[in-house]
Design a protein around this nucleic acid. Structure first.
Lengths: 189, 189
DNA sequence: TTTCTCATGTAAAGGGTTACATGATTTA
DNA sequence: TAAATCATGTAACCCTTTACATGAGAAA
């Protein structure tokens, strides 16, 4: 049900095609929501039937035709109602790496370490991208009032990735020290 | 597909009923995976058909009968294969509050602040519970080698909640300073 | 020559949530 | 008296993912 609020929310910033909404999703909502393009097109179709949004086709010569979606009054009303009602659904997270990490006792320590090293590198890369994105979008940490939300949640994303990096470092240190304990025990035998 | 690995993983620590697995899920995997009891029973049934696990019924007098599940060789093999193959699925996160936060420009600043205050309190409570849990399970930060994974991921959970608290504080400060700017602008008019 | 961008979608399968069902015992 | 604990599950629905389909132009 919440996918529609995400889409309505993006449409408050202006008309857009399904394609563009998919891109904006990837750019600004990646840190707390994911949606496939197939899902986006279907939800837009449903919302048009319910008259929350409307669309008109734009013919293009060199490219395929596109369908511009626009937020309608009913859609805006529904969105604001949701924003104001103070109910917050439980978050859901599914993280394969953490699931594997919870079972690290089943595999050799060096394999565990390489999982963590890889995860750390990916998040380091992510922080780099995010810092670039933020300096182009919010130079000098300045933001327009319409960008308040994006400013806040992109900082959440940046901090989340940093938290991952720090945890990976901590976890790798723990595993290294366990490795050392083992080798000392072997020597004492 | 990954739910079954989570269940197989829990079963490496000993035989358990669907009911117990649901509880262990809530206790130790809450920070990176969630599953309904209906889903757990269904998956256990499927895995029994595929001979990854086996079960036998225990009759009880005062309580309903229960079905104890046991990890079979094929299940253990499948789990280890998954642990060793180094492919990690993309994590998926759906967070209602962050979605709302990304749209904070649409609502009054005081409503936004109360969302953040509530979230902060919930995570403060969570950190408290987690600290208790860790001091009973890992007194003096000592853990047995079979608990390595749990030790690592519970620390992830603790840090994640702390990251939330810190972000809420930061975000509330930003919104407060925006409120101040507005009231100064009003005075100058 | 392969991949990427643009742009939209359908169909099928898989995974997750909600509602319902049972029923004794214990705790608030 | 209401709710929680113990214990299992089915059925229906909803949401998400994957595979497939089209087809031109541009960049690597």
């Amino acid at each position: 049900m919440a996918l529609r609020y995400a889409l309505l929310g993006l449409l408050t910033k202006g008309e857009a095609t399904g394609y563009e909404l998919n891109q904006r999703f990837k750019e600004t909502m990646i840190h707390f929501w994911k949606a496939h393009h197939t899902q986006i097109y279907r939800e837009l179709g449903k919302m048009e039937q319910e008259q929350l949004v409307s669309s008109h086709v734009i013919h293009q010569v060199e490219y395929p035709d596109k369908k511009l979606y626009k937020l309608e009054k009913q859609g805006q009303h529904l969105l604001l109602q949701w924003m104001m009602n103070m109910n917050v659904a439980q978050p859901t997270l599914k993280d394969d790496l953490l699931l594997k990490a919870s079972l690290f006792h089943l595999i050799p320590k060096d394999v565990a370490l390489s999982y963590l090293q890889k995860a750390k590198e990916q998040h380091l890369f992510g922080v780099g991208l995010m810092n670039e994105w933020r300096t182009t979008h919010f130079p000098g940490n300045e933001f327009s009032s319409a960008d308040l939300g994006e400013y806040l949640t992109s900082e959440f994303g940046r901090r989340y990735m940093q938290h991952w990096i720090d945890w990976c470092d901590w976890a790798m240190a723990i595993i290294e020290s366990e490795k050392n304990k083992e080798s000392i025990e072997r020597k004492q035998e």
